[in-house]
Design a protein around this nucleic acid. Structure first.
Lengths: 201, 201
DNA sequence: CCGACCCCATGAGAAATGTCACGGGGAGTT
DNA sequence: AACTCCCCGTGACATTTCTCATGGGGTCGG
């Protein structure tokens, strides 16, 4: 019997996944939470074998949760389950100690299979996603460049970004310019979009 | 027995929802498709009482599907099931003939309840979302302003938008300017974001 | 028919954005 | 110690964006 913890902020999806997984005789859902910062406590209380983690959650995100779990509860392995097959997500997931990575549009058998393999100690990733991750490479952005791009996400002006980050306006423009050339965009907006697509923000 | 059709592009989610709904004794999932343009045919073949439609799908989107169904198969009522509680989505859903609107983070009983009520002939919407929809009002954007905003989504320059839409560059700027003032943004990028949030694109 | 509103366009000025060259300071490597 | 790379800044320039005024043509309802 494999004990499972489910973490996803969308209640309906969480319940639906629980129902789906309950169809497998060797699975048992022992915990179900809607916030990233509730996972650790729930895991300690229920001792699951595998934690299924969405990335986008209130509190802390699934990737960070995977890091915490691998530190504090190494006997509970993490599987990231997310909508987005962003290369950077996979990379960060693996670096933070996750053992599996499944995207939400894969067939259901694949999820069950991934869970069993991870429970057995294997590592599981979508081979296609793994390939594009290797092809894309890791983020070329420096910490500051990333900060500035994140701040620019809402359509913020250079002056506002400068104020928010306690920088001079010229510096902000320089960082943006550097980020744009690294990402291969001719626009601030385009740079944000692309970096986001790669999972670099 | 209520016959259901499921349409969602994410296979895992679709299967999970099917599993969840199968737990209710009075529900029967008779069809399940992953593309908007497959819904009509499947509905004609299986004669469901209620069609559960995601908005974001390849082919045509769920809102358009609802329109088609209400025209061609009025005995099959549509329920929109989506992640985003965008005011504009709800409005368009209702205008296109959908009978229910449920967001993916509502509790599972609410979905079952909504399905039963819609099957019984009622209309069902999240009251909170309905309120913000009324507050937000319908889109103030003209068709062209919308087009330009959509084209600007990828971080496209004014010149490129002009080329794509066979307009002069100045005209594009004028439309963008109008859109920005209507939406309450001081940026092109911000305008795109806000209009998108409202579901106006 | 007239007003209202949308479509499309031009042009011009103010503001923001993107590029480039340059500099100094700090941390880590070789 | 020299080198590299990141951090932060300045200043100047070309380009783009945003605003505003203005105009013609179209459709639709009063």
């Amino acid at each position: 019997m494999i004990r499972l913890l489910l973490a996803d902020d969308q209640e309906l999806i969480r319940s639906a996944l629980a129902a789906l997984l309950a169809l497998e005789e060797d699975f048992e859902v022992v915990a179900s939470v809607g916030r990233g910062d509730e996972v650790a406590a729930a895991a300690k209380a229920t001792q699951p074998d595998v934690a299924l983690l969405d990335i986008e959650m209130p509190g802390i995100d699934g990737l960070a949760v995977a890091g915490v779990l691998s530190q504090e509860l190494p006997e509970c392995r993490s599987v990231i389950l997310t909508t987005f097959g962003r290369p950077g997500y996979l990379r960060r997931a693996m670096e933070s100690g996750a053992r599996g990575f499944v995207v939400k549009d894969s067939p259901p058998e694949q999820l069950a299979d991934a869970i069993r393999r991870v429970a057995a100690g294997e590592r599981v990733v979508d081979p296609l996603l793994a390939a594009t991750t290797l092809a894309t490479g890791s983020s070329p952005l420096t910490a500051r460049e990333r900060d500035v791009l994140v701040a620019a996400r809402a359509g913020t002006s250079a002056a506002e970004i400068a104020e928010k980050l306690f920088l001079s306006e010229g510096t902000v423009r320089n960082y943006l310019s550097a980020a744009m050339s690294k990402v291969g965009a001719r626009n601030r907006a385009e740079a944000v979009i692309r970096a986001d697509e790669y999972g670099w923000l």
